[in-house]
Structure formats: structure tokens, C-alpha cells
Design a protein around this nucleic acid. Structure first.
Lengths: 198, 198
DNA sequence: ACAATAACATAGCGATCGCTATAGAATGGA
DNA sequence: TCCATTCTATAGCGATCGCTATGTTATTGT
């Protein structure tokens, strides 16, 4: 029928992801994006819609490629405690992987937004809330199984581990290395409530 | 000699602080700043230099007015443990105070920066590192006083509490309330190393 | 070969960015 | 009163923002 696309859409999307990961949604201009993707603006808009839709697609790809460790850990471990411990340990490794920008895109890419990007900010906020809810679901599972003291505030415990993970992302972006973040993860697990030995 | 300034410089600076606190350095335009400050651009540039110097002055004011609780807590408490505990408890209250924007300006105001604002980003990074170093200094004091196990990794312990504080700031901006953040603070203190009872 | 179709690069749209030249208004000293 | 000085407001500077109209080039079916 007609001429075919001359660039690799997936590779371009990955390069856009890396650019957004580094500098965030608003601070990454279309000029930087096209330079990183190796294409010109009309190709970007034809293939991805506009900057916002490109970012939304980037977020979905990020969750599948770079954020899936958390989903897997929460799904595969036998207990909530082991699941949370694994999420923290793997976050220390992922957030400091020299193969890509430090920290977590969902946590850091839409922090400083003007009013015109409020929807983008809200989208990532919902992503963070979903992560916290997934952690809480596993904690509630431990609660139902009698692995936690009955007086445990599972919402607060989930908020605590969500906060530790978000802080680890900030620490990673500030230069803290993998080994130290792994010790942070170990320390965070010391707050896990113990069942009384009666 | 000449005409005198018709606006309150301190009040204008405070309004600029609130604007930067809400949306961050780059996402807050000079147009928004002048609207919030109740002045016109020439008055802003005459009184504060330029946008970057205004932000630097805002950061200094923030540290004196809104961030001083941390400095005071770390200076006044008798032990490092009590100091850290008070910083966490007061952070829960400060970060959710309905009288001003949520979270911490030093942690959140320069996360998404383009290359032209890298120096601003680096300035806040140094502020966060200074806070972590101040926490570590009190922890090292407890270490020297024999209040911590000799094998304690004080750098990792400081990084852990810095991460918790940074995560609490993110949680506050995402809508978590004061009571829940106070429970997060309590949980975080459960990781404090105990001296072995030999 | 030729028309139809779509991706391509160039160039530039209106809007906003940080910032400032210019001119008018208000205050001081002589 | 008059000048010198400094703040104030209007208007607009060059640059960049996200985005697109236009024309060209390449690939298809016939």
C-alpha cells in the first residue's frame, strides 16, 4: 500500500522511556525526545499521538519491564513478610542498576508539574497508591493467617514500607549505592511486627 | 534620596516560597511567581536578582522557617535515638500541616530538572546529604557512648532514617494524613538496634 | 511504468518561557 | 520648587515550548 516506518518503534519508545526517567515528564522537551529517539517530530506524533500519550505508553512499558520485579515478588512469595522483604531487596538492586537511570520512574517522573500536567501527576500518584495497596493486600493475608499480632495496623505497615521504598528511590538518585540500600532494606525489615510468644 | 519600595519584601518572599513548594522550581513560572507575590516582573528582578537567586533565597528561608524543626530536634535531644525519634514524629506533623503545602521543599522542589537547572538540583541534593550527615552525627554519638551495638553500620542506619523521612514527604504529598504518618514514624523506630543484654 | 498511499524532513505556527528596555510615578535632598 | 534617584507598570525582547502544514521520498498494487 504505502511506505513503511523506517525506525524501530519499540527502540524509540525505550529511548523515550530513558529520557523521561532521567529528567521527568515536563522537563523532557519534545526536542530532547526526538533527539533521543532518533526521529523527527512528525514521526513522533504519527507513531505516539502526542507527548502525554507517549508518556502514558512509557509508563505502561516501565511497569512491564522495570517495575515488574515488585509485582512478581508480591505474587510469588509464600508469605507477606517474605514478599515485602524481597521487594525491598530487589528495589535496592533495581534502583541502583548502572544499566539505566537510578530510582523509580513512577515515584520521581512527575513530581514538579504545572497545572497543565496535573493529570499526569495524578496518574503516577495512582500508580504509587496501587503499589501500596498491593503491599497491604499481602500484609492483610499474613494477618488473616495469624502471622501478625491482632492489633497490627496493616494500613500503617503498608504505608511504612511504601515510604521506605520511595525513600530508597530518592537515595538512589542522590548517589547511594546498592550495598548501602540493601542494608537500608534489612533495617526496614526489623520493624516487622512479631507474634507474641505466648 | 529616592522612591521607596511599595511591597513587603518578606511577604513576597514567603508567597514565592509557597509557590515553589507546591509545584517545584522549573514548573513555577515567573508569571506565576509575580501573580503570587503581587508584583510585576521588574520589581521581582530588582529585589531578588533572577529566578534562580530568588529560589536560593526561598530555600534559605525554608530551612530557617519550615525545616528548623529538624535542626532543633537533632540539637536538643539528649540521645541520638531520642533525636531521630523526635525528627520523625515532628516530620509527620510538619509534612501534613494544612497551613502550608504538604511534604518537604528540599526533598521535592527540584526533582524534575532540565540540564539548565542542574545546579539547582545539586543544591537541594547537598541539602538532603547534609540532613543525612546530621542524623549520622547523632547516631555516631550514641555509638561512642555505647548506646548502640559495636557492629552497627551507622552510615546505613542514617541512610535508613533519611529514606524514611523522604518517603514520608512523598506519602504526605500523595495524601496520607498526620495520624498515619505518625504510625509510620513509630514503626520506623522499631528498627533501632538494641544493645545486647549480656 | 504509473498512480495511490503513507512516512519522511524542513520549516514554522501561536503560545509561553525568563528577562529587560523604556517611560511614568513617587520620594528624598538642595 | 526643582532635580536626582529609584521604584513601578507597560510592553516586548529573543528563545524555546508543544505541535503541525507543506512538500518530498519511498513503497505498494495494478
Amino acid at each position: 500500500m504505502a511506505r513503511q516506518r523506517a525506525f524501530d518503534r519499540d527502540a524509540a519508545l525505550e529511548n523515550a522511556l530513558l529520557a523521561f526517567w532521567r529528567h521527568g515528564y515536563e522537563a523532557t522537551s519534545v526536542a530532547e525526545l526526538t533527539a533521543a529517539m532518533g526521529i523527527r517530530p512528525p514521526s513522533l506524533y504519527a507513531a505516539f499521538g502526542d507527548k502525554r500519550r507517549l508518556f502514558e505508553e512509557v509508563v505502561r512499558r516501565y511497569q512491564e519491564v522495570y517495575g515488574s520485579f515488585s509485582t512478581r515478588a508480591l505474587a510469588e512469595e509464600p508469605t507477606g513478610r517474605q514478599a515485602v522483604e524481597r521487594v525491598l531487596r530487589e528495589a535496592a538492586s533495581e534502583y541502583t542498576d548502572p544499566g539505566h537511570p537510578p530510582g523509580c520512574l513512577i515515584i520521581t517522573a512527575a513530581v514538579n508539574c504545572g497545572p497543565e500536567s496535573a493529570e499526569v501527576e495524578e496518574g503516577l500518584r495512582q500508580g504509587r497508591e496501587a503499589s501500596k495497596a498491593a503491599i497491604r493486600a499481602r500484609i492483610d493475608g499474613d494477618m488473616a493467617a495469624g502471622l501478625l499480632p491482632p492489633e497490627t495496623d496493616t494500613a500503617a505497615l503498608a504505608a511504612y514500607y511504601a515510604a521506605v521504598i520511595q525513600g530508597m528511590s530518592t537515595q538512589a538518585r542522590d548517589g547511594t549505592g546498592r550495598e548501602e540500600l540493601e542494608r537500608v532494606a534489612e533495617l526496614a525489615m526489623l520493624a516487622w511486627p512479631a507474634v507474641s510468644a505466648t
